[in-house]
């Protein structure tokens, strides 16, 4: 016997998210590193950014943690923990200072 069942996932709360347009070409420009707070992330991301800078003729202009602009926390503090969101002032600052940001997620 055919039955109808209801969808367990339900609707989405927001419409689809549009990705930012891709950078046309990686030629020069300032590169930023946003440390996601995981062990060795800053080291790995900075090395990658330096390698990229060498390839495209750019420079690593900013290496920053997710709450480094709040003035109330440092490396390893809750605001820089991988489990917390990046402070908006950090993102705003990076968007003004650099053209490309390297960051990471998970371990």
């Amino acid at each position: 016997m055919t039955i109808l069942i209801q969808d367990p996932a339900g609707p989405l709360a927001v419409g689809g998210v549009q990705l930012a347009p891709a950078v046309p070409a990686l030629v020069s420009g300032k590169i930023g590193v946003l440390d996601n707070g995981k062990p060795n992330a800053r080291l790995l991301l900075t090395k990658a950014a330096e390698g990229l800078a060498t390839r495209i003729g750019g420079e690593v202009a900013s290496v920053i943690g997710k709450s480094d602009r709040s003035g109330k926390s440092g490396r390893g503090a809750p605001g820089n923990n991988a489990a917390t969101a990046c402070e908006s002032q950090v993102l705003e600052g990076l968007s003004k200072e650099v053209r490309i940001v390297l960051t990471g997620s998970a371990d």
Binding site: M1, T2, I3, L4, I5, Q6, D7, G10, P11
Partner: peptide, 12 residues
């Protein structure tokens, strides 16, 4: 208002 999606199964 959105219709909640229904799925049809041949059997329970």
């Amino acid at each position: 208002a959105e219709m909640h999606e229904l799925h049809s199964l041949d059997s329970e």
